[in-house]
Write a protein that binds this DNA or RNA. Structure first.
Length: 553
RNA sequence: GUCCCCGUAGCUCAGAAGGAUAGAGCGCGAGAUUCCUAAUCUCGAGGUCGGCGGUUCGAAUCCGCCCGGGGACACCA
C-alpha cells in the first residue's frame, strides 16, 4: 500500500516538479511515531533541496498544495524542518476493512501465486539423536520464512537434508553396539567419541530384546555395528519427523545424502565441474578451484585416501537442487557454518547460476538458562534438553514465539523459568489474550443482544472517529507492508513485533472504550466490525508464525 | 591473523537500505474492576544508543579506526 501511494504521489508531484523522478527511489513513505504527524509522512522535500536549491520547508509547502487536491487525503500538513504529513480519508479505511473481511486469515497475501518456485532447506539435523533447541530455532525460522515466501506469492518446497552417510552414522552404530554388548558384559569398551545420551541405551535395550540372536550371530563385528547404526538412524529419523510434525513443521522433501553416493550423482556433479575446468589434482588429492568464484583457497573434494569429503557430497546435493530448476534457494544453517558458505557458493556459481541464487540464513546459538545459570548443551556428553521436552514443558506456541523474538542471526538466551511461567510476563499469552478477548466480546454480543458478529454484517466506518480507532485502522492498513518487508528481508522475527503491537493497541482500545453499548446500535456495529478486522489480522499473523488462535483462555 | 554476531534503561532485548522528543517487557513506585475476561490498562522514575573521527540539512542507523564480549576459520561432518 505504501508503494501504491508513493507511485500516486510521485506522479502528481512530477507534473509540476519533474526533478522528483530522479530521487524517487530515495523517497520514504513512513508511518510516523506520533498521531499528530499524520497517517503517513514523506521526506521528499529534503531530497529535493539540492536539485531546486531551496530550503526544505519552502519545497514542502509547494508539494502540500499539490497533494491537498487528491481524494485519498483528508488533510496535508507541513511540519518540522520539512516533513509532509498526510492524513488518510475515511473512504480509504472503509476499503481496507472490507478487504480484510474478504481475505480473512490471508489478509494481504499475494493472490497471484506465480512469483516463482523456490526451495527452503532447514533443520537437516544428523539423525544421531533427538532435536535440540538449536534445531528448534532453525525449524521455526525456516518454516516461518517459508510461510512468508508463500505470502509473497512464491511456490515453496520445504526440504530436510538427511546426513545419513559418513562418520556420524558410523559413530552412532558403534555407540549403540557398545551399549548392546555392555548389557551382558559391563566392561565392554565404549567408543571415546561416542554418543552418551540415554536414548542410545534405550535403543540398545530394544535391540537386545528383539534382535539379540541376530546381532550376536553376525561373524563380523563391523556388520553388527552397521546393523545397529542403520536401525538407530531409522528410528531416530522417525522420532525427528514426529517431533517436527507436532511442532507444526512439515517437509515436502526428505533428501538422503547417502543416495547421492549410491545414485552416482556425486560423480556426475564432479564431472560437470571437471568439464568446466574447475578440477585439478595436487598432493595426491583432487581439488576444486573455488578461488575462481571468491573463495579464499581451493578445496579438497577427494582425499588422498580416495574417499570423498563432505564438501563433495554437498556440491552434488546442490547440483541436484540446481537441476531441479528453482528460481532461488535458501539454506538455513547453524552460524558455525558461516565460513563454509563462500566455498559452497563458489561451487554453485560454477554451475552458472545468478549471483543471488543461493541464500543462507544463519541461526546463532540458543543459550539455555535455568535458575539464572546457563545449561551447557552437548550431544556427545548427553547433557541437553531436547526440543520435545521443552515443548512439553512450555507449550508449542510459547516456544515458537520465543524463537521468533530475535533476529535469527543473533544469540538468543532462552530462560526456561520465564517461558514456563504461564503469566503475563510471557508475551505469547499477551497476544493470544487479545484474540481470545475479541472472541469473548462476540459471544457476549450474541448472548445479550442476539446479534452474532461471527456472521457477516455491515456497518458505517465513518462513525469510528476516536484517535485510537483511526490509529488501529491505519495500522491494519499497513500490516501487509510490514509482513512483506519481513519476508523480503528474511526477518521472520519481525512478525512477533507486529503482532505484539497490534495486540497492545487492541488492549488499550478495550480498556478505554466500550464496544457493547445498546444505546447506540450503529456505533456498536461499527466497533464490532473493527474488532472483527483486528481479529482476522491477528489470525493472519498467527497463521504465518504457526501459533494457535485461542478462543478462550 | 582473517571472517561472522553482539555492545541501546537495573535486567532481557526491540528499533538500523539516515529523519521529528530513542522504545517495549520484566523489575521498582503510584493508580484503574457498579461495565464486554485485571492473562488487561494508565501514570512515574530510569539513557552520553561502547569510544573517537568522517559523510550532510540531519547519524543509534552509513563509512573509517579503536575498545570489550561471543563464535568460526580441517584432506572433519
Amino acid at each position: 500500500m505504501k508503494e501504491e501511494i508513493k507511485e500516486r504521489i510521485v506522479k502528481e508531484i512530477g507534473k509540476s516538479i519533474p526533478d522528483i523522478e530522479s530521487i524517487k527511489d530515495k523517497i520514504k513513505v513512513e508511518i510516523p511515531k506520533e498521531e499528530k504527524f499524520g497517517d503517513l509522512s514523506i521526506n521528499a522535500a529534503f531530497l529535493l533541496t539540492k536539485h531546486l536549491r531551496k530550503k526544505p520547508l519552502e519545497i514542502a509547502y509547494q508539494i502540500k498544495e499539490i497533494l491537498e487536491k487528491l481524494p485519498e487525503f483528508q488533510k496535508v500538513e507541513v511540519a518540522g524542518a520539512g516533513f509532509i504529513n498526510l492524513f488518510l480519508s475515511t473512504d480509504y479505511y472503509e476499503q481496507i476493512i472490507k478487504q480484510i473481511l474478504v481475505e480473512k486469515d490471508s489478509y494481504g497475501a499475494a493472490k497471484d501465486k506465480n512469483k516463482g518456485r523456490i526451495n527452503v532447506e532447514f533443520v537437516s539435523a544428523n539423525p544421531t539423536g533427538p532435536l535440540h533447541l538449536g534445531h528448534g530455532r532453525g525449524a521455526v525460522v525456516g518454516n516461518v520464512q517459508s510461510n512468508l515466501y508463500e505470502y509473497l506469492g512464491y511456490n515453496v518446497e520445504r526440504e530436510f537434508y538427511i546426513n545419513d552417510a559418513g562418520r556420524q552414522i558410523q559413530k552412532l552404530g558403534e555407540s549403540v553396539y557398545a551399549r548392546f554388548r555392555q548389557i551382558e558384559q559391563p566392561d565392554y569398551p565404549f567408543p571415546e567419541d561416542g554418543y552418551h545420551g540415554e536414548y542410545i541405551k534405550e535403543i540398545a535395550q530394544h535391540l537386545y530384546k528383539y534382535e539379540r540372536e541376530k546381532i550376536l550371530s553376525m561373524v563380523d563385528e563391523k556388520q553388527a555395528i552397521d546393523f545397529c547404526g542403520e536401525f538407530a538412524k531409522e528410528l531416530l529419523l522417525e522420532r525427528i519427523k514426529n517431533d517436527l510434525k507436532e511442532f507444526g513443521v512439515e517437509f515436502d522433501i526428505w533428501f538422503s545424502e547417502k543416495k547421492l553416493y549410491t545414485s552416482g550423482e556425486v560423480e556426475e556433479a564432479l564431472q560437470f565441474l571437471k568439464n568446466k575446468g574447475m578440477i585439478y589434482e595436487k598432493d595426491g588429492a583432487v581439488w576444486v578451484k573455488t578461488t575462481l568464484y571468491g573463495d579464499d583457497k581451493d578445496r579438497v573434494i577427494i582425499k588422498s585416501d580416495g574417499s570423498y569429503t563432505y564438501f563433495a557430497g554437498d556440491i552434488a546435493y546442490h547440483y541436484d537442487k540446481f537441476k531441479r530448476g528453482y528460481d532461488f534457494i535458501v539454506n538455513v544453517w547453524g552460524a558455525d557454518h558461516h565460513g563454509y558458505f563462500p566455498r559452497l557458493k563458489a561451487a554453485v556459481m560454477a554451475f552458472g547460476v545468478p549471483e543471488n541464487w543461493i541464500n543462507v540464513m544463519f541461526i546463532q546459538l540458543v543459550k539455555l538458562f535455568k535458575e539464572g545459570k546457563e545449561i551447557k548443551m552437548s550431544k556427545r556428553s548427553g547433557s541437553f534438553i531436547t526440543l520435545k521436552e521443552l515443548i512439553e514443558e512450555v507449550g508449542k506456541d510459547a516456544v515458537i514465539y520465543f524463537f521468533l523474538t530475535k533476529d535469527s542471526d543473533t544469540h538468543l538466551n532462552f530462560d526456561i523459568d520465564l517461558a514456563v511461567k504461564k503469566s503475563s510476563e510471557n508475551p505469547v499469552y499477551y497476544v493470544q489474550y487479545a484474540h481470545a478477548r475479541i472472541c469473548s466480546v462476540f459471544r457476549e454480543a450474541k448472548e445479550r443482544f442476539g446479534f452474532d458478529p461471527e456472521e457477516d454484517f455491515e456497518a458505517d466506518i465513518s462513525l469510528l472517529k476516536e484517535e485510537t480507532e483511526r490509529a488501529l485502522m491505519k495500522f491494519l492498513a499497513f500490516i501487509p507492508d510490514l509482513i512483506r518487508e519481513a519476508g523480503e528481508r528474511k526477518q521472520p522475527h519481525k512478525l512477533t513485533q507486529i503482532t505484539y503491537q497490534l495486540a497492545s493497541e487492541f488492549h488499550y482500545y478495550y480498556n478505554n472504550f466500550k464496544f457493547l453499548n445498546p444505546d447506540d446500535e450503529n456505533l456498536m456495529r461499527s466497533r464490532l466490525l473493527l474488532l472483527k478486522a483486528i481479529r482476522e489480522t491477528l489470525r493472519t499473523l498467527f497463521k504465518l508464525m504457526g501459533i494457535t488462535p485461542l478462543e478462550r483462555m
